[in-house]
């Protein structure tokens, strides 16, 4: 098995993992957009007019990309979107850390939730790993065990 083929196979669990992460991350935000809006406001980066709009829409984009990655449909597009979102999240985290804010990440649970996820360098590192995984999937995925390949075979 060549290195490229190995990487293509490796990208399958990578995209499944990213898919689960993104779907898992969006559920509490969709269920409670008000809390997510507070999370965004706590970062103190976006103007007030954008906070609710982002809180309402971003989780659905996360859900769409997570679902696409898991199902293996338009994988390059989904991994590109994930990489862009991870880059934005990392930037927000770095700004919050530079300001010395002692706050929850809001990634998987809202501010004040019992299961807190305080921001730290580790949070940035975690996002960096996911960013790298998204790039890996973007470059090496060949549609194995995915909807794209199944649809392609069906139409052929």
């Amino acid at each position: 098995m060549t290195a490229l083929r190995f990487a293509a196979w490796l990208s399958v669990p990578a995209r499944w993992y990213l898919g689960v992460v993104f779907v898992g991350a969006c559920l509490h935000k969709i269920a409670d957009p008000r809390s997510f809006a507070l999370d965004i406001a706590t970062y103190d980066i976006l103007p007030l007019v954008l906070i609710n709009l982002i809180a309402i829409t971003l989780p659905w984009v996360e859900l769409a990309t997570g679902g696409m990655l898991f199902a293996g449909w338009r994988v390059r597009t989904a991994s590109f979107l994930v990489a862009v979102m991870m880059a934005v999240f990392m930037l927000a985290l770095l700004i919050a850390l530079a300001r010395g804010l002692d706050m929850s990440c809001g990634c998987f649970a809202s501010q004040g939730a019992e299961e807190e996820d305080p921001i730290s360098r580790l949070t940035v590192l975690r996002d960096l790993v996911w960013f790298g995984l998204a790039l890996f999937v973007f470059v090496f995925d060949r549609g194995r065990l995915g909807l794209d390949r199944w649809l392609q075979r069906r139409s052929a």
Binding site: L38, A41, T42, V49, I51
Partner: peptide, 11 residues
């Protein structure tokens, strides 16, 4: 949720 928040969030 209202599309545009009218009052600032109490952070």
């Amino acid at each position: 949720l209202e599309l545009i928040a009218r009052t600032p969030y109490q952070i």
